[in-house]
Computed example of a mutant assay.
Amino acid sequence: MSEPSHSPAPQAEGPEQPRALRIEDWLTVIIMALLALITFANVLVRYFTDASFAWTEEISIFLMILLAMVAGSAAVARDQHIRIEFLTSRGTAARKQLLARLGSASVALLFALIAALSARVVWDDWRYEETSPGIGVPQWWYSVWLPICSLAITARAIGLFRRQGRLAQFEAVATDEQESA
Results as ranks from 00 to 15, higher is better:
V122L: 08
L98S: 01
A51I: 11
R22M: 02
I84D: 11
E13R: 00
A181C: 03
I135D: 15
A54Q: 05
R101K: 07
C149D: 06
Q139S: 14
V45E: 03
R120Y: 09
L160A: 06
V70D: 01
A71Q: 07
E57L: 03
G159L: 06
P15F: 08
L27A: 08
R156M: 00
R95F: 09
L110S: 12
A112C: 08
S60K: 04
A157H: 01
P4R: 15
A112W: 02
V45K: 01
P147S: 10
P15Y: 06
E3C: 11
E129R: 09
S60A: 15
K96A: 13
K96Q: 15
A51T: 14
R101G: 04
V122S: 09
A71M: 10
L63K: 00
L167C: 10
T49V: 05
E179W: 12
M1H: 14
S118A: 11
L44H: 12
D79G: 02
M69R: 02
I30H: 11
A116H: 13
T131P: 03
W126E: 11
L21D: 13
L27W: 06
M1E: 13
R90Y: 09
R127M: 12
Q139M: 14
L35F: 08
R78D: 02
I135F: 15
I82S: 10
L110T: 10
S132I: 04
E171S: 03
L109I: 12
Q11S: 14
L109G: 15
W140Q: 02
L113C: 13
I59Y: 08
Q139Y: 06
I23A: 07
Q80R: 06
A93H: 07
T56E: 07
V173P: 01
A36I: 12
F62L: 02
V43Q: 06
M69C: 06
A115M: 11
S118F: 00
G72P: 02
T88W: 04
R19K: 14
S104H: 08
E179N: 07
Q169T: 08
V76H: 01
F53H: 08
V122M: 07
L167G: 05
G159Q: 06
T92H: 05
M64W: 11
S73E: 00
F170A: 12
T92G: 00
A168F: 08
D125T: 04
S52D: 15
T131L: 14
H81E: 15
R46L: 10
D79I: 03
A74P: 00
E13K: 01
L113D: 11
D25T: 14
A12L: 14
Y142W: 13
F53V: 05
G136R: 02
L151D: 02
T131H: 06
T49F: 07
A115L: 12
A20R: 14
W123Y: 14
D25K: 09
R101D: 03
L151H: 00
T49Q: 04
W55Y: 11
V70I: 12
I61H: 09
F86V: 08
